[in-house]
Write a protein that binds this DNA or RNA. Sequence first.
DNA 1: GGTCTTGTTGCAACATTGTAGCATTAGGCG
DNA 2: CGCCTAATGCTACAATGTTGCAACAAGACC
Lengths: 165, 165
Amino acid sequence: MASPQPPYPASARSADDDVLRHFSARERIAARGGRVTRTRLAVLEMLQHGSHPLSHDEIGDALASAGVAHDRVTLYRALDWLVEQGLARRIAGGERAWRFEGVRDAAHRHAHFHCDRCGQVVCLEGLEPAPATALPNGFQVERAELVLHGQCATCGHGDEEARPR
Amino acid sequence: MASPQPPYPASARSADDDVLRHFSARERIAARGGRVTRTRLAVLEMLQHGSHPLSHDEIGDALASAGVAHDRVTLYRALDWLVEQGLARRIAGGERAWRFEGVRDAAHRHAHFHCDRCGQVVCLEGLEPAPATALPNGFQVERAELVLHGQCATCGHGDEEARPR
DNA sequence: GGTCTTGTTGCAACATTGTAGCATTAGGCG
DNA sequence: CGCCTAATGCTACAATGTTGCAACAAGACC
Ligand SMILES: [Mn+2]
Ligand SMILES: [Mn+2]
Ligand SMILES: [Zn+2]
Ligand SMILES: [Zn+2]
């Protein structure tokens, strides 16, 4: 998990360093031997600062609003790469599209809440998905995904204000 | 949840009855005021007897093998209807397609295991997803979905025999 | 059993989300 | 500055659902 990638830069640093001090998105990308490109950089910065997981589509819109030109496919590939490198995480909200969030602490996993009215997903930092359980023989768990479904605070305000999507 | 649908048959029965005695798929469909059609009937029978959740595609293949002619869209609609009626449940495996399973006990929820090698999903009847937790203010949980990811018993046998999908 | 009503089907067209192939561009090192 | 090749930006394609609508058939009523 901290094994060096081929063309590591001179000032190599382990993935764990990222947890302790905070490096810039540019540095974190370069440290993994990847080229710092427009899309990767903008996406990683967005994910690092964002507070909740975003879909490919939402990220694309945000990039467009920020005036960052980008291609749909390139965005998919940038996200895949960030996930491979452990810089982002892909989570499976209740809808059909993946959502992505920046990884701050690689060791820390948390559950998510999916609002079935507005579709918003929020992180439940305090809630760690229970991993250890008696499984059928021969099964081996690698990770657990816990998604709570219901109604978020905003959607619960005035009676059914927000419309479903 | 047990509120009667418009055209209820004379011998109306509540959804809970289904739990106690077991009615035929034909009866359970009719009891909800739905028309008993080829596809609905075959699908519900399949789901009731199946041991693990199936995707739309797998169900379609199974129907074909069993010689039950059906249309792709009709199958989607039959599944939607069964879910609406509480006769089936839709779960969000780690892949892009929904999976469906028959509902035996409406009150009983359980977690699932998703094998990341072969894609198989198995029910963890013993494991109930923890619902009660301290949520941000104003949030209201309706249900919890817990999916464990890892390697199933079959895939764990010979070193990496089954290939990923 | 025959008729009527309307819930369901079956088809074609479309939408969303993601991948594959491949020529072209541009990141970063010397 | 120039080179090498990782990444991009297209265009197609694949997988999974959804929508609209005319035709059909389930089942209630006689
Ligand atoms: Mn999160
Ligand atoms: Mn199950
Ligand atoms: Zn909401
Ligand atoms: Zn497996």
